[in-house]
Computed example of a mutant assay.
Amino acid sequence: MEANNNWKAVCALADIPKLGSRVVRRAAGDDIALFRTETDAVFALTDRCPHKGGPLSQGLVVGEAVVCPLHGWAIQFSDGHACAPDEGCTGKHPVKVVDGVVWLSPV
């Protein structure tokens, strides 16, 4: 598959461990953390917890969320929002998997 609409191939699905993450470094702005769930769903969030800026990529994947390694905040993959009672949000980025390749949209 070739890149279209500015989507960029960033890695193979196999490069992201199940229940783990991989970081996509950006020249400008915060890095992006790619997460892989038990069911091989992939999500992309800004690699910065809304609480104290901790690296979400170093957190634990639990279901459809990541738990920040600094203070235990759970951040939902669906929208980047902290799970109640915590409040805050990190950026969510469009991502897709096609034929085992993970694609990230710069938007």
Score class of each variant (00 low, 15 high):
E2D: 12
N4L: 10
N6Y: 07
N6R: 15
K8E: 14
K8H: 07
A9E: 14
V10A: 08
A14Q: 12
D15Q: 08
I16F: 00
I16T: 09
P17F: 10
K18H: 08
S21I: 03
V23C: 04
V24Y: 00
V24F: 05
R25I: 09
R26G: 01
R26F: 08
A28N: 09
D30A: 15
I32C: 05
A33L: 07
L34M: 10
R36Q: 08
E38D: 15
T39Q: 13
D40H: 08
D40L: 07
F43E: 02
T46R: 06
R48A: 05
C49H: 03
C49V: 09
P50D: 08
P50N: 07
H51E: 10
H51C: 13
K52S: 01
G54P: 03
P55C: 03
L56K: 00
L56E: 03
S57I: 04
Q58F: 05
Q58S: 04
G59Q: 05
L60F: 01
V61C: 08
V61F: 01
V62F: 06
A65T: 14
V66I: 11
V66H: 10
V67K: 07
V67Q: 09
V67R: 10
C68D: 01
P69M: 04
P69S: 06
P69R: 09
L70I: 02
G72T: 06
G72S: 13
G72Q: 07
W73N: 04
W73Y: 09
W73F: 11
A74E: 15
I75C: 07
I75F: 07
Q76E: 12
F77E: 05
S78F: 04
S78Q: 12
D79C: 12
A82W: 00
A84K: 11
P85N: 07
D86S: 15
G88S: 13
C89H: 05
T90H: 01
P94C: 08
K96S: 09
V97L: 08
V97A: 09
D99C: 12
D99N: 14
D99R: 12
G100P: 03
V101Q: 03
W103H: 10
L104V: 10
L104Y: 03
L104K: 02
L104C: 07
L104M: 12
